[in-house]
């Protein structure tokens, strides 16, 4: 049975409102694949770079990045912007990020809808925000400030979450929608994260998708996860499950083709296997053209 469309949206192809290109099917660049990528130069449409892997270093990582970005389009995806924190914004981090984006001619850059630490500490995790008016106002103001500093739209990703706060007053999907519209930022829609969060919280993933302003989605993430029965963890391991492919198919049927990227971070297999997994998205994209 075909997956349903995102409710109320006709199947069509829309441009994202930022005019950012559909880069095709990409792979998250990981250290274990550096040698393969540089020597074999596989036919990958684009690479997503983990920003922090190339920051605070002056050695081999930047040498690798220079070679990869000379051959492939790259986008930057970070985990340490700490956008939702009540700490002051880290402008030293943002300056280095901006320089990195210019160095590798990143097509866009982004991070997550989350916070990573407070009181000067860093948990190195994507911690959840309460979906409240206070948190939304805070995040909107900071997203606007960062976009002004970076002189480009931020591409923000919905993170997987493992708890919900009693204080929340709106669904996470509405929080994301209002953030995108009030901060005028772009979205990186991680359909695996939607599946994981909905499983963990008992939400309906199709209703979640209904709230997402698809014209703001410039990139889609795919990944595998770990199902512990009582909850799911976004481990970026293994193949993408069918339920996540269904969500992906529905999004691109309504939004049109979007740059699509596979993340694989645990028990990382050979590059060819990672690449083959994202190439499965091609059949959904081909169906749009048919």
């Amino acid at each position: 049975m075909a997956a349903p469309d995102v409710r109320g949206r006709p199947a069509r192809s829309m441009n994202n409102r930022f005019g950012l290109a559909d880069l095709g099917l990409g792979v998250g660049l990981r250290t274990v694949h550096y040698g393969h990528v540089l020597e074999r130069q596989p036919a990958v449409d684009f690479f997503e770079i983990l920003s922090e892997n190339f920051m605070n270093t002056g050695g081999r990582p930047l040498h690798i990045l220079d070679q990869v970005s000379a051959r492939y389009p790259v986008v930057l995806h970070g985990v340490s912007m700490n956008l939702g924190s009540t700490d002051p914004l880290d402008f030293a981090y943002l300056r280095e990020l901006k320089a990195l984006a210019e160095r590798c001619r990143a097509r866009w850059l982004g991070d997550h809808v989350c916070w990573t630490g407070v009181a000067g500490r860093n948990s190195h995790d994507l911690l959840p925000l309460p979906c409240t008016e206070e948190a939304l106002r805070h995040l909107v103001a900071r997203t606007r400030a960062v976009q002004d500093f970076l002189e480009r739209p931020l591409v923000l990703e919905n993170a997987s979450t493992y708890l919900t706060f009693a204080a929340s007053t709106m669904p996470e999907s509405v929080f994301l929608q209002r953030l995108a519209e009030e901060a005028d930022c772009a979205l990186l829609l991680d359909v695996n994260n939607i599946y994981v969060s909905c499983r963990n919280h008992g939400w309906d993933p199709w209703e979640y998708l209904d709230d997402i302003p698809l014209e703001r989605v410039v990139q889609i993430h795919l990944a595998g996860h770990s199902d512990h029965g009582t909850h799911c963890i976004d481990t970026h391991s293994g193949a993408v499950i069918d339920a996540v492919w269904d969500l992906y198919a529905a999004v691109i049927r309504c939004a049109g083709p979007r740059a699509t990227l596979l993340e694989w971070d645990q028990d990382i297999p050979a590059f060819e296997q990672v690449h083959a997994e994202v190439l499965k998205a091609g059949r959904y994209r081909a169906a749009l053209a048919a």
Partner: peptide
């Protein structure tokens, strides 16, 4: 009082994941 339980996990267990 701060974290909601899920159908399968208590509030403390959910916080414990993090």
């Amino acid at each position: 009082a701060v974290v909601l339980p899920s159908r399968a996990l208590s509030a403390a267990e959910r916080l414990g994941i993090y």
